[in-house]
Design a protein around this nucleic acid. Structure first.
Lengths: 342, 342
DNA sequence: CTTAGCAACCGAAGCGCTTCGGATGTGCAC
DNA sequence: GTGCACATCCGAAGCGCTTCGGTTGCTAAG
């Protein structure tokens, strides 16, 4: 059996194709009784609008793509949660979410670009933003509606949803200071990313107020991978003077760092305290359970979706730059400092 | 500037719209010289076919969806790798991959169904198969091309790609037997899934040959979550007689189990050996590094994609039921048994 | 009684592509 | 000269929808 079309509904319900279309799409110049009749028939026939026909006529696909960078998906489980929330919200608004995930050749972006040009998607949610991002302008130049998870420096006109990374890191730093730590290491995310800059600034500021600033040798830039966390920690651990605590850019980095610490025959948290970021499911099951920062993933996703739709439909609220706060999740990977030297 | 259409190319290259279309789509009744001319113009104008128009005319979307169950994505990182490979392969064939991931209300499937009815997708890759699967027939009844990652009992006509879970588990079991273990626990995946049945049968058979069969109390059915692994292990650990080794259905389950073992004041591997499944990135960084089973994700993804396309285009090879072997990755979570009691 | 204004509805064009069925031209055997 | 096979090309229809620009029939003001 072939799928029913608008014409089938028109025939069944005794009105024109135009009226059926307008009834189904919620236009106002359709009487309530007609609308009800049309909806009843549509439901009975299990009608589904043909996305191609609709797209061709309206130039809209009702699909939006989530674009991220190389390996971000595997290394940043938090994206999964955020995107689930995005999908859920979009679904309620009649949109589908597509993941344009990255391949080694960085095709995530190219894919999205070409999908837009083919009218397969109406807009893009970009999941990681670089300082002086080279990708963002490519979308913007083509007039592709973009919403950022993160923030683009000096581009407040691009709608965005972000977490207050600076405040979160400031809080983590203060927590460690309160435990008596003064020598704090910092495994930063790649500083080409805006979020990494923000987080570091939070750390830096509190450290400056408290102890005159971070020690440069203990600040290491790492990728998101476990191995990179291991290597970063190893570098700090093999120094002459070691920190008593290490703040990590993600839980996976923290996990790598913890392995390095064990390999150096040191204990967490007795010898070195460790803090992660993201609160991935694994964090609670580590030994010791990891103290970390939780992001409001559900809320982030919901807002991203809403911003996206209003960017596309240009009717609702104007571009917003939303920033949410994080929670500090205290577990057992940090300890009050044992023997204050200095 | 508006996107160029076939007509633009036709005008520029001096041939008809029909010829341009056929040239671009590789039909044979176009001379080489014409084809080259057309391709050149298309490239110069940066032509991208309008997916809607194409879909409307040809009734094909050149998109395929990956469908999975509740939370599978977060708990089964291996899917990410497989899907990356699927995406990569599909991309080379002119197709896009969409993830129709699940929401709590199990909408992954509904989504895919409705997307198919809207002609947004041409087929579905189904990522987990239940015994007597209730979802599969829903796709099949609608005539939706489906390829399984896994196998459906008694449905050899549905193309599938799977891993030889029975052989893998048999190998794991033999490995533990070789280390002197006789009392082996087994944290199984939900037995409603075909793959869990297969894996268990591999374990069971080897145990039967070696020691007359598994001990029923040490076989526990768990979900994929870390917590579930913890709970399952806790149940076994609180028994009067404990196993000396535990085989886990996934690395995350193993991670949960390891935490339980620590909480019981026992050591891995000295007191209890642990084996995982999947070789997630985290496995190598655990303490101790986890012995586990690696699946050939890249190959799996490639084959899934190829099967999908041939299912859609009905031209190439017939439905296949492919099964690949896994690798056992030896690390430090298993030890030769210390003191044989019995 | 006339007519402006409004609610409700509809006809037809057209979105950009594929594809069916033919048209054209060339070379070659008869 | 005629007919045929073949390679190459093209016109036009049509996919199912949205939307522009109406028309119709009613109410209520003038």
């Amino acid at each position: 059996m072939d799928s029913p079309t608008l014409d089938d509904i028109a025939k069944e319900s005794g009105c024109s194709r135009t009226t059926v279309s307008r009834a189904l799409n919620g236009y106002s110049d359709v009487s309530e009784s007609t609308r009800r009749k049309v909806l009843a028939v549509a439901h009975r026939l299990n009608y589904r609008p043909n996305a191609h026909a609709r797209g061709l006529a309206s130039n809209r696909s009702h699909s939006i793509a989530a674009v991220m960078r190389q390996s971000a998906f595997a290394e940043t489980p938090i994206f999964i949660e955020v995107l689930e929330s995005v999908r859920h919200t979009l679904g309620g608004l009649g949109y589908h979410l597509l993941h344009a995930a990255p391949t080694p050749e960085f095709v995530g972006i190219e894919d999205a670009l070409s999908m837009y040009q083919m009218h397969k998607i109406d807009g893009v949610i970009l999941l990681e933003v670089e300082v002086n991002d080279s990708v963002l302008p490519r979308f913007l130049d083509l007039g592709i509606p973009v919403v950022l998870f993160g923030q683009a420096e000096g581009r407040r006109s691009v709608p965005s949803v972000d977490v207050n990374g600076a405040a979160a890191m400031a809080r983590v730093t203060r927590y460690l200071l309160d435990l008596g730590h003064r020598r704090i290491g910092y495994l930063s995310g790649p500083l080409k990313y805006v979020y990494a800059q923000h987080r570091f600034s939070g750390f830096e500021q509190v450290m400056t107020e408290a102890v005159g600033g971070p020690i440069a040798e203990w600040v290491v830039e790492v990728e998101g991978s476990l191995q990179s966390g291991y290597d970063g920690a190893a570098r700090v651990l093999s120094m002459h003077r070691r920190p008593t605590a290490v703040i990590c850019n993600s839980d996976y980095v923290a996990l790598g760092a913890m392995k390095a610490i064990r390999d150096w025959r040191l204990r967490v948290p007795e010898d070195i305290s460790v803090v992660g970021f993201d609160d991935v499911p694994v964090a609670r099951f580590l030994s010791p359970p990891l103290t970390t920062v939780r992001q409001p993933t559900g809320e982030l996703g919901r807002l991203l979706a809403e911003q996206m739709i209003s960017a596309i439909e240009r009717s609702t609220s104007p571009a917003g730059n939303i920033v949410l706060e994080c929670d500090l999740v205290l577990r057992d990977s940090c300890a009050r400092i044992q023997h204050a030297e200095e």
